[in-house]
Design a protein around this nucleic acid. Structure first.
Lengths: 204, 204
DNA sequence: GTCTATAACGAGATAGAC
DNA sequence: GTCTATCTCGTTATAGAC
């Protein structure tokens, strides 16, 4: 088995994950069924159960693959030559790309469905947000150290605001069918980190 | 029929709405059933169908009542002696109250379920956000006029950021079971409107 | 208004042939 | 790996008695 296969990126299992992922991101975990996925792929429900015994296992696989890809996107940002401000812009662009196809962030959607999720999926959803928080926290601290970003208090708290605001902007943009609504909110949100006049109020 | 009855605030229909509302806010529109509501009220499913023919009609009634109550809360804020900054704090507190019982905003939850909603519910969800936007826009413009609030660009766009950020903060706070996580984000969000140092950089 | 009873359908899952 | 066939259960909804 190749690395891509292990990550669920090739073969039948991957096709199942592709379809299921899109359905969850647009309709929610309780808004799609094995029958929906099977019909779209032209296979039977029984075949799906061979690859993923139950909806719980399918859901776990969905989050795990999504989290891996998200983490890779963040690593790609880190690997680039971008300054911290541009890194945050790229971070928001990752969200915008998800929304482009009228999809909600997978884990944002699952956060809404949280109360109905099996325990393993719950754990994975929280871990996704934790990982995002940690990444953002590091960028924010770096930016503050360089004097390139300006915010009050702890970087971790600022990171939580950013994640929530981006998730919420996606959530509300979808009913309007307007990705620009998200982009405008993201731009405005990140602009609050530019000012930095808090540090130079009234002279000596 | 009294005004309260017309608003669905008394009688059996109101009890049904109370239970259904909580279930939708915690589990989503596709995560609860007539059986859940009936069991909790100690009545039969058939009885529910007498008051609300189908899930679509129940859903419409839920949004309409919720929107009325939300609008009343905003009117109450307007009627008080608060300055614009305190009005925004009260606005965020309305959200915080909803979250207190581990509930998501009804329309935020329905925004996640949007793709699966009947047309009438979709329209009502969008109207809810539009109404919130309009209220916030007016407060923001007033605050800017008074020099009490500071933001760049159009008030409408700033209103969209605030609504999305509050909805998203609720969305993410729930999996953590931590209302303080929401409060901290809301406080930080509104603090970005206080600075206003753009206008008084480096004074004497 | 609320009940019993039941219809009609879909969802999740399994057994076993191929 | 995928199929047919089947099972069980839950969900939505209706008919008609009380």
């Amino acid at each position: 088995m190749t690395a891509r296969q292990a990550a669920g990126e090739t073969g039948t299992a991957a096709k199942i994950l592709d379809v299921a992922e899109r359905l969850v991101q647009s309709r929610g975990f309780n808004g799609f069924s094995y029958a929906d996925v099977a019909a779209e792929l032209g296979v039977t429900k029984a075949s799906l159960h061979y690859h993923f015994p139950g909806k719980a296992e399918l859901g776990e696989a969905l989050i795990n693959r999504y989290a891996i890809r998200f983490a890779e996107a963040l690593q790609a940002i880190d690997a680039g030559p971008l300054d911290v401000r541009a890194k945050l812009g790229s971070y928001a662009a990752v969200y915008a790309d998800v929304l482009q196809d009228n999809r909600m962030c997978l884990c944002g959607m699952l956060a809404a469905d949280y109360e109905t999720l099996p325990p393993a999926m719950r754990t994975a959803v929280v871990r996704f947000f934790d990982d995002n928080e940690t990444w953002l926290e590091r960028v924010l601290e770096q930016g503050a150290g360089e004097g390139a970003l300006h915010y009050e208090g702890r970087a971790r708290d600022q990171a939580q605001l950013i994640i929530g605001a981006l998730e919420g902007a996606m959530l509300v943009a979808r009913p309007y069918g307007d990705p620009d609504r998200f982009r405008a909110a993201a731009k405005r949100l990140l602009a609050t980190l530019d000012g930095g006049n808090e540090t130079r109020v009234s002279g000596p």
